[in-house]
């Protein structure tokens, strides 16, 4: 794989919180249309990687490129904004805006941030709600929706920005087991449509089915990076084996 073709390129990034070094030199590249899953024990820095990619956390050292944006060189919130238009994020806690309806949550940013036409955005938002199977919940407030429904609205909100890549940060971790399925189904459909995405997840079965590639992280490093069949059936590193032995 040639490096220059990759949509996202991460090279040897380091990040510390105080004395604690969370990322100790992570490198990863993601091609267009690729779905990459990051798995690993908690505290291994999975979510931190995602937050570094869209600049929510500044890195201490290393190189990050997303499309034309050299993320590590962006210094201010202002410089980050064009990047954020290309990279959307879905959070573990959904983080919907509680004072707006589902439809408004999806429409807000495209209108207020991207300056798109309201009518066009509304049309797009309604289609997206249909896509996540919540067409009938357009006027519901987040507080009236179940966790799984809120998360699907959050996914629609991310899609409404028409990003080139979406980062999924443990999006099913806070959900009831029965609603996990509907969210995973939605994500799988998006991946099948060719969405580029990076998913941090605890759902091994899902990672195996949906991902083009799986990365196993442990203590701030990517220990193993392989297609799911190889990583799950034939792990090379003893740490990967140990982890999979515990969770599978």
């Amino acid at each position: 794989m040639k490096r220059s073709e990759a949509l996202i390129e991460i090279d040897n990034i380091h990040k510390s919180f105080g004395d604690f070094e969370v990322l100790k030199g992570i490198s990863l590249s993601v091609n267009e249309g690729e779905a990459v899953c990051i798995i690993g024990p908690s505290g291994s820095g999975k979510s931190t990687v995602l937050r570094c990619i869209n600049g929510l956390l500044p890195i201490d050292e290393g190189f990050i490129r997303v499309g034309n944006h050299r993320v590590h060189e962006l210094r201010s919130e202002k410089e980050m904004r064009p990047l954020r238009h290309q990279v959307s994020m879905v959070f573990q806690q959904y983080n919907l805006f509680p004072h707006k309806t589902a439809l408004e949550n999806i429409m807000m940013a495209p209108i207020q941030v991207l300056g798109h036409e309201r009518a066009e955005v509304e049309d797009r938002a309604r289609k997206l709600l249909e896509k996540v199977r919540l067409g009938n919940k357009a006027d519901s407030y987040p507080g009236m929706l179940s966790g799984g429904q809120q998360q699907r609205v959050a996914i629609a909100r991310a899609l409404a920005m028409q990003p080139e890549v979406i980062l999924f940060d443990e999006v099913t971790a806070a959900l009831d087991p029965e609603t996990v399925k509907e969210v995973l189904l939605t994500i799988r459909e998006l991946v099948d449509d060719g969405l580029t995405c990076i998913l941090v997840t605890h759902e091994m079965k899902f990672a195996r089915e949906v991902a083009d590639r799986v990365c196993f992280t442990d203590r701030g490093l990517i220990v193993e990076n392989a297609p799911p069949a190889d990583l799950f059936d034939n792990p090379q590193d003893p740490r990967t084996r140990e982890f999979l032995g515990q969770v599978l």
Partner: peptide
């Protein structure tokens, strides 16, 4: 999380205050 979500959507700080 509200700040994070709004920032990830590309809002500016004054916009985050005003809309979120």
């Amino acid at each position: 999380g509200q700040w994070e979500a709004a920032r990830a959507l590309g809002y500016t700080t004054p916009q985050i205050y005003r809309h979120v």
